[in-house]
């Protein structure tokens, strides 16, 4: 097996007396999709924030294998290096599209921002790339100059995905990308994500409370409760034969359509 892309060890975060994340650790390999599931308040989003460096950890480390193949402790990176990594090799798709997009800037500008951030200074090329990416996430080309405020919830999430993938990242973090969307829109979005992940060989950490999303997208699953990982394994294994009582409850509580 190849060396892991991301190695998380003993991540811990306290908010006062409350433990949001308690010694969470896992390894993620290139091209692997890991689902983090659990109920609200189980520490899923905090975990994602810790990995992305947006929340300062109380203990633990996040090690990432850079493009040159050298694993680096992310806490030891300078701000310039960290930010460069975040906008080239990583993506972050937010639950609330308004946080992940520039709502006052057109769709094309949103997709082009990362390109301009890494030094692209040719308008024609930026626009062509933006149009190409909008097509790949199934947004019509004639919406390229509309701001996301005029987009539906599903389109905003698609735009976020395009904006993040335009620089060809190797790792994408997704925080509940399908929540708040109706079922048919969800299905199409999941289909798009699954296609892109397979096509680009992305490693993904997807946080979700929806077990169907985990089933559809992920290879492995991490079940969290109260800031702890209580069960982990292959997705089908965990969902079909849950060992921990809480996981059994979680699986059993899914309504059959």
């Amino acid at each position: 097996m190849s060396a892991p892309l991301l190695q998380v060890q003993g991540l811990t975060k306290r908010y006062g007396p409350r433990l949001a994340c308690d010694g969470v650790g896992f390894a993620l390999h290139p091209g692997e999709v890991l689902a983090v599931v659990g109920e609200s308040g189980s520490g899923k989003s905090t975990l994602l924030g810790l990995i992305a460096g947006e929340v300062a950890a109380d203990a633990g480390s996040v090690t990432y294998r850079m493009r040159d193949g050298v694993p680096r402790d992310l806490a030891a990176l300078g701000p310039a290096e960290r930010r460069a990594l975040m906008r080239t090799d990583w993506g972050f798709v937010r639950q609330d599209a308004a946080q992940g997009l520039r709502m006052a800037v057109s769709a094309g500008g949103n997709v082009g921002e990362r390109l301009m951030g890494i030094g692209e200074r040719h308008y024609g090329r930026i626009r062509a790339t933006a149009l190409d990416w909008l097509a790949r996430v199934e947004i019509a080309a004639d919406r390229v100059d509309d701001p996301p405020t005029r987009f539906s919830g599903g389109m905003r999430q698609r735009l976020q995905i395009a904006r993040n993938l335009v620089t060809g990242p190797r790792l994408v973090l997704m925080d509940e990308p399908t929540s708040g969307l109706d079922v048919s829109v969800q299905a199409r979005l999941l289909d798009t994500i699954r296609g892109l992940v397979a096509e680009l060989g992305l490693a993904v950490i997807i946080v979700t409370h929806d077990l169907a999303v985990a089933r559809l997208l992920s290879h492995r699953i991490l079940v969290m409760r109260g800031g702890r990982v209580i069960e982990t394994g292959l997705t089908d294994q965990v969902l079909d034969d849950p060992q921990a009582p809480y996981t059994q409850l979680l699986v059993a509580s899914v309504l059959a359509a």
Partner: peptide, 18 residues
Amino acid sequence: ALAEYGLIHVKLYEDIAR
């Protein structure tokens, strides 16, 4: 501080797009 000036080009991009 980090000379990250991609954003200012987003403004110019928006001008041309519009």
